[in-house]
Amino acid sequence: METLKIAIQKSGRLHDESLKILRDCGISINNGRDQLKVEAANFPLEIFYLRNGDIPQYLRDGVADLAIVGENLLYEKGEDLQIQKRLGFSKCKVSLAIPKQCDFKSVAELSGKQIATSYPNTLQKYLDQNNVSAEIHLITGSVEIAPNIGLADAICDIVSSGSTLFKNNLKEMDVILKSEAVLASSPNLNTEKKQILDKLLFRIDSVLRAENAKYVLLNAPNEKLNEIIKILPGMKSPTVMPLAESGWSSVHTVIYQEKFWEIIDELKSVGAESILVSPIEKMIL
């Protein structure tokens, strides 16, 4: 039987969250100390722990079939690779930043300047799109220090909270790219591996839906049920069950995070009571 080989970061910000989503999919991974490769106990999956920057080439070569990587890495080194699923975690930006005292108003003012970065291809594409000619200074370590030591006039780097920029007396000038963790695939998957991938994607979809939704139970007077049902479409329609107390019903439904508090406010305003909210472990449609 075929086994899917998935690459994740050996270490770094994506490592723990990559393992978590696989485990949330019910895949049993028993890590040994300093292992570079491990097989799942209950799913045809083999996990490779690789250096982040090497992963796109391993996908091209077919050494790995899948990988959980930052979208920014694919933009830099793997635009030819297919994204199978956006995973919603490890969100960040690749930004252009300058010293706080600089008064540059547009990227055009960086023409002829030096820009330090660990993402030369991403930066070059950005400069080309803006018709700017600047000197790219490649740095593999801490990019933020470059302007402070006179090595560059600006930097291009990953920004998460912005605290690192602040500590190094820098400010964001422009966002080049927004990124999150993605599941990417090799172009060399055979039919059997694609079938295993479909099963994995089904599990991932169930996990991601559950993370973005809450299970809600509430009590409602029967004369208000129609109003409440209009507010609560649910996955198809809410479940309504009579309570022991005459004239009242229990309503069960699912509310998605993006509109959760607005809907709760509406429910209360039309007479819903005793609203209980629970997390959902998996949501299978």
Results as ranks from 00 to 15, higher is better:
M1G: 12
E2R: 07
K5H: 06
Q9G: 09
S11Q: 12
R13H: 15
H15R: 10
H15A: 08
D16L: 13
I21R: 00
I21E: 01
I21N: 00
G26S: 08
S28K: 15
N30S: 12
G32S: 15
G32M: 15
D34I: 14
L36M: 13
V38I: 05
N42I: 10
P44L: 01
I47W: 00
R51A: 14
N52F: 14
N52S: 15
G53H: 14
I55F: 00
I55G: 00
Y58P: 08
L59A: 01
L59C: 02
G62Y: 05
D65T: 00
A67D: 00
A67Q: 01
V69R: 01
N72A: 10
N72V: 09
L73C: 02
L74C: 02
L74A: 03
K77R: 14
G78E: 06
Q82V: 12
Q82W: 12
Q84R: 09
K85S: 07
R86Q: 10
S90G: 08
K91G: 10
S95D: 04
S95F: 01
L96Y: 07
P99L: 03
Q101I: 10
Q101M: 07
F104H: 05
F104E: 00
K105F: 08
S106P: 05
E109G: 02
E109L: 06
S111W: 08
I115P: 03
I115E: 03
A116S: 07
T117R: 04
S118G: 11
Y119D: 08
Y119M: 12
Q124L: 13
K125S: 11
Y126W: 08
Q129M: 13
S133K: 13
I136S: 05
I136P: 04
I139D: 07
G141M: 07
G141Y: 06
V143Q: 04
A146D: 05
P147I: 00
N148Y: 15
G150S: 07
G150F: 04
D153T: 00
A154H: 00
A154R: 00
D157F: 11
I158F: 08
V159T: 04
S160K: 15
S161N: 06
S161W: 05
G162Y: 02
L170G: 02
E172Y: 07
M173R: 02
D174V: 09
I176L: 10
E180L: 04
E180Q: 08
E180S: 04
A181Q: 05
L183W: 03
P187C: 06
L189F: 02
K193G: 03
K199P: 05
L201C: 10
R203H: 12
I204S: 01
D205P: 04
A210E: 03
N212P: 09
K214M: 11
L218A: 06
P221M: 05
P221G: 10
E223D: 12
K224V: 09
K224M: 11
K224W: 08
L225E: 08
K230E: 15
L232A: 04
P233W: 05
P233D: 10
G234I: 03
M235F: 14
S237Y: 13
T239R: 13
V240R: 04
V240F: 03
L243M: 09
E245I: 11
E245N: 10
S246C: 13
S250H: 10
T253A: 09
Q257C: 13
Q257L: 13
E258V: 14
K259H: 14
F260N: 06
I263H: 11
E266V: 09
L267W: 07
E273I: 11
S274W: 14
I275E: 04
L276K: 14
S278A: 15
S278V: 15
I280S: 02
M283P: 09
